[in-house]
């Protein structure tokens, strides 16, 4: 069987400094995305543990697995978690969730903690959708759009290209800078047509990296056009799987003329983190 080039890595993390058994409220968030699922556990609002793994064909199972993996080696079990919020594309399939909340709301809330309350614009580029969100200093959504209709501008679109060019998806961003000069972007928005266009460019003798650059640039252009609808205001952050693709991220920053904020956290956990934060607010409110 052909090697699959488009899978993201799986990982987990736990805090070494937090004693979870100190009576502080423990809440959880699970973001079941189309490609990967993340689980986050907070102790008294502090990040305690998280995980990210592939979403299998069975969403409820993926939710359970990702939470178990986040808790691995912590001594904590699901019973210790007071309130869990499910979010993401498969949010209705989190069997142990007390409530489900849209990923738009969760991303804004998560980014507010991850990047600080100066964040006003969030671009989340997931596996199967692209969200542009404006929020206030509390992480409350003030304007948003979500594009899950069209694969252009989503991780899936990039995966199609990584596959076509037989390049591991983690390398796509770096490789897109190994070009003598920046090529014009692939002109078709539609991924199906862009793929045909790219095949033509390869036949014309373009180097793989040049084609990658042309697609990263097209993708950047595409998401900037989505951002224009909601308007971009400082500070600006990019989350989701594509946030790891420097080829797209740097081109977006260049096109809109605003640098993206960095974070010590993993950008992919924004949704799950927001869900866990909402879980805390809701638990405290007794909702």
């Amino acid at each position: 069987m052909a090697k699959e080039f488009w899978r993201w890595k799986e990982y987990n993390w736990k805090s070494e400094n937090i004693n979870w058994n100190n009576g502080a409220i423990i809440t959880g968030g699970v973001d079941v995305g189309s490609v990967s699922s993340q689980a986050v556990v907070l102790v008294g609002g502090e990040l305690f543990a998280y995980s990210s793994m592939r979403t299998g064909s069975d969403s409820p199972m993926s939710a359970v697995n990702s939470m178990n993996w986040a808790l691995e080696g912590t001594g904590m079990t699901l019973e210790n978690i007071k309130y869990v919020v499910g979010t993401g594309y498969g949010r209705v399939n989190v069997p142990f969730a007390n409530k489900t909340i849209t990923e738009i709301a969760c991303h804004a809330r998560g980014a507010n903690l991850m990047y600080g309350n100066s964040v006003r614009t969030i671009l989340d580029m997931g596996g199967q959708d692209c969200k542009a969100i404006r929020c206030d200093e509390k992480g409350k959504v003030t304007n948003f759009l979500m594009n899950d209709k069209c694969a252009a501008g989503t991780g899936r679109g990039m995966e199609v290209f990584a596959d076509l060019l037989s390049v591991p998806i983690e390398d796509v961003g770096e490789l897109s800078f190994y070009v003598e000069e920046e090529p014009p972007p692939v002109s078709s928005t539609c991924v199906v047509f862009a793929k045909t266009e790219a095949t033509g460019l390869l036949r014309e003798g373009w180097h793989k990296n040049k084609v990658i650059a042309a697609y990263c640039s097209a993708m950047a252009h595409r998401v900037v056009s989505l951002l224009e609808r909601i308007g971009v205001e400082d500070d600006f952050v990019i989350t989701g799987g594509i946030a790891k693709n420097v080829g797209v991220v740097r081109r977006i920053a260049k096109e809109i003329g605003i640098k993206t904020l960095e974070t010590e956290y993993d950008s992919q956990i924004a949704g799950a983190l927001g869900a866990a934060l909402f879980a805390r607010s809701l638990a405290e409110k007794g909702k």
Binding site: S57, R156, V191
Partner: peptide, 16 residues
């Protein structure tokens, strides 16, 4: 799915 790329995955799920 409306998009051809996403619909391909849907067709695969239907086949499964």
């Amino acid at each position: 799915a409306q998009c051809a790329v996403f619909a391909e995955s849907e067709v695969v799920s239907l086949m499964h």
